[in-house]
């Protein structure tokens, strides 16, 4: 199980949880696992094509997965994943 950290902007759709443990061998599987657990997150994370929105960044142990293998980036059991949408507040 890898740990997925959710920022405040996503937490209302995840029963207020800051982090959840999800199984999955790739980022795609982990994100699918997150959405399965909290279906209300689907519209915030995924576009109509089922891919991640371009305004949601995914970091695997602090690295942007866009510069790894994207959604196919392999995930290990002790990895930390952050889902991070843009925020604009100032």
């Amino acid at each position: 199980m890898s740990t997925v950290r959710l920022p405040a902007v996503l937490r209302a759709q995840a029963d207020g949880q800051k982090a959840i443990d999800v199984a999955g061998g790739t980022i795609r599987e982990v994100v699918a696992g997150v959405v399965e657990r909290h279906p209300a997150l689907a519209s915030q994370l995924l576009g109509p094509d089922g891919d991640l929105h371009r305004f949601v960044n995914v970091y695997l142990n602090g690295q942007d997965v866009r510069y790894l293998a994207g959604l196919e980036t392999p995930v290990g059991p002790t990895d930390e994943i952050r889902l991070l949408p843009a925020i604009a507040g100032g």
Binding site: H53, R54, G90
Partner: peptide, 30 residues
Amino acid sequence: HASVFRFEGQLTTFVPYEGPCYRCLYPTPP
């Protein structure tokens, strides 16, 4: 650059061509 939401903040410094810019970080807004 900084942005905030409730109890959280994000911070970075964009130096043209030395590091990413805002569009590199977030290609589109929500």
